[in-house]
Design a protein around this nucleic acid. Structure first.
Length: 261
DNA sequence: AAAAAATCCAACCGCTGTCCA
DNA sequence: CTGGACAGCGGTTGGATTTTT
């Protein structure tokens, strides 16, 4: 009854992949394409679970996987997207061409979470007052008017409503640069409006934005302490109890589009 | 130089949603 | 309708490497 389990764990190899295994997987997928992960190990002559093969392919062997250090521009973008999306690693990775969800997750856990924790400690010891910083104000409607999905790297997802960075090898670098410029610009503006000169020197992630969705202002106050400033809306627009229970994907997409614009 | 501690990251685990028999 | 296979995702682990003592 039913199908056979996806893989028998008996007799399968685990742990690090060898070069030989990589070559087997690579040549098989190049010849037959990806997919059918259950049957792949047997057909490719690998003593691995199909799930393991898929992971190895996606995170390491795929040709568009970018190796090397995360740049400061990419780091900024990760932090910014994480502030809006939370631990949605695959979603964040979708906006960083060549980076995998696993890589971003690891980078967050090993670098960024610690960096933020350190800054939290520093700020808590250096200052006990919670003062509201000047806001960087903009509106989604005005941002949307500047969006050109067909030319600025934000392309409509053909299979859905989410704005997705399409990974074209020809335009990839330009897309990244566009995103990086926007992020840098936003961070520079936010930074220049901050009062504490010591904080200005360091690249901290502490934003405070307003934006407008469906003609209603939504506020975002984000700090290292996780502080929500007085007067701010306490939940994300798509989580708002006034909209609907659970995620409002349309508003989430609008939010992402705004962040990326 | 050696041991201990910290860091990094590839890989694994388990869960969820979707598809299909 | 039910239940199993599968793909995909986020959390966690474990071992290799690097840094510190």
């Amino acid at each position: 009854m039913g199908r056979a389990p996806c893989c028998e764990k008996v007799g399968l190899r685990r742990g690090r992949w060898t070069t030989e295994e990589d070559n087997l997987l690579l040549s098989y997928i190049q010849a037959n394409g990806e997919g059918s992960w259950r049957a792949l190990p047997k057909n490719a002559g690998l003593l691995r679970c199909g799930k393991s093969c898929r992971l190895r392919w996606i995170n390491y062997l795929k040709s568009d996987v970018k190796r090397g250090n995360i740049s400061t521009e990419e780091e900024d973008l990760i932090v910014k997207l994480h502030a809006s999306l939370g631990n949605k690693w695959s979603l964040i990775a979708g906006h960083l061409p060549g980076r995998t969800d696993n890589e971003i997750k690891n980078y967050w856990n090993s670098h960024l979470s610690r960096k933020i924790a350190q800054n939290t400690t520093k700020r808590k010891t250096s200052s006990t007052k919670k003062t509201r910083k000047p806001r960087k104000t903009s509106t989604l409607s005005s941002k949307q008017s500047n969006m050109n999905p067909s030319s600025d790297g934000l392309l409509a997802d053909p299979n859905g409503t989410s704005p997705t960075l399409m990974q074209s090898t020809n335009t990839e670098n330009k897309q990244v640069q566009n995103i990086q410029q926007v992020v840098e610009s936003d961070l520079a503006t936010a930074s220049s409006s901050m009062g504490d000169s010591n904080e200005d020197k360091e690249h901290e992630y502490d934003w405070d934005w307003d934006f407008e969705i469906d003609n209603s202002m939504v506020g975002l106050g984000l700090g290292f302490e996780g502080e929500i400033f007085d007067g701010d809306v306490l939940s994300w627009p798509w989580e708002s109890p006034t909209t609907q229970v659970g995620l409002d994907m349309k508003k989430q997409d609008e939010m992402i589009a705004w962040l990326m614009s």
